[in-house]
Design a protein around this nucleic acid. Structure first.
Lengths: 228, 228
DNA sequence: GATGTACCGTACCGTACGGTACGCCGTCAA
DNA sequence: TTGACGGCGTACCGTACGGTACGGTACATC
């Protein structure tokens, strides 16, 4: 039982990640390497880039998996989603909030860092049945799709409260929203398709997705005619 | 310049994959191992499982990447999508065709084999800038989202032809359909979430997706009221 | 029967990488 | 001044794996 320091939460959820500045430097180097080389980077390279020794790495993070986990958790702790409070939602502000949400989600998803992290988690999720590796997939899942659901749920609930939305099952609405926004952007990015959509491309995608979502689930003044 | 035999198409598209039966046995073993252990399996294990020698492996496929590529291509060549010919589409048959399409797509996407293949391609897509690895991502991309688009396009065109659909840009409609059907199923599967939807779960997802799609893009008799 | 070919099994080699050990130096407290 | 400590750099070790070589065997062809 070594102490590994820092992160110990047994629920694996991405607690604040209270690393020292020096440790964050190291993690930043890891993140860079992950973007550049995927899972294939060596500890030696990390040390060279971060100007630290392997022994330090080992003392801080235990082993390679610990380092990866720490990196993923640290990055996860940095991503803050725009939250909309339920107070005083109007048709216009609600639509705008949904659009903002979609935009920032698309920006995250199509970023190189997110792609690298997801690649890492995906490959580890399929490696050796049990192995401690599984945690990575869990963490990313927790901070990816599941975080989106958690964020979205109160927004949609607020929308329903205000009579702007109508749905039977919130889960279904969430899933639909996810599908309309993300579509095939993420999987194409993960599979290495180079073209990242431009800012306006993302904007248009988001607006269209919200438009379609409101066509399906909008009520009252939000429910307007077909697009086209 | 070794001969590597078999697949040589420079465009990388997943041509028929004309392997000998014995070679297919080997590829099947590789596929199994990929499902079980992800990208981490060793050539030695392949040999043990397939009862072949490393030298044979090398003669047939060149190197590890060649073996992986061959496996991916072989699997890709096995996936046949249900095609609907444009002749005599009615509102009912069209909806049924879309639903069938969605169902079979969901079945593929949530299968272990597909997940393993996608994991492989995803991790290789993020590994080392150029390296021949990139090809895997390309191939899977070609047989994943892009194949779906190709299959879907004539179907939607036929639908429009028959006055059952109305859209400005076919690409947009395709993207929307993709999003509604796939939603977060694929990414969650890739990240290792164990629960595969049941047959009826898939059925319901597909029907709902088609329902929503037709609400957005349906014309004439296909355009019915809101669900709920 | 001799010869060639295709393949299996296994042993082998080089390398790369995770993990460990150790010497050295700056900092800080006593 | 001295000693302890945290951390850097480097050298080192064991292992695992990709790739190669080689002997042995079944089978086909002449």
């Amino acid at each position: 039982m070594n102490t590994h320091a820092v992160i110990k939460r047994e629920d694996g959820l991405p607690e604040g990640a209270d690393f020292t500045p020096r440790q964050r430097e190291v993690l930043a180097a890891v993140l860079d390497l992950m973007v550049e080389e995927g899972d294939g980077f060596s500890l030696a390279k990390v040390c060279r880039r971060a100007s630290c020794s392997k022994e330090t790495l080992y003392n801080w993070f235990g082993d390679r998996d610990g380092l990866l986990t720490a990196t993923v958790q640290w990055q996860a702790s940095k991503v803050k989603m725009p939250g909309l409070d339920a107070a005083g939602v109007t048709a216009v502000s609600f639509r705008a909030a949904l659009t903002d949400f979609a935009i920032s989600w698309l920006e995250v998803i199509t970023s190189d860092v997110s792609a690298a992290l997801n690649r890492l988690a995906v490959s580890h999720a399929g490696a050796g049945a049990v192995s401690a590796k599984g945690r990575l997939g869990e963490i990313v899942l927790e901070n990816g799709p599941l975080a989106m659901r958690r964020r979205l749920k109160p927004m949609l609930a607020a929308g329903e409260e205000a009579g702007l939305l109508a749905f039977d099952h919130c889960e279904m609405a969430i899933r639909t929203f996810f599908g309309l926004v993300v579509a095939d952007w993420q999987i194409r990015k993960l599979l290495g398709e180079a073209t990242r959509p431009s800012a306006t491309g993302i904007q248009q995608t988001a607006e269209r997705a919200v438009e379609e979502f409101l066509l399906l689930y909008g009520a009252g003044e939000l429910e307007n005619g077909k697009h086209g």
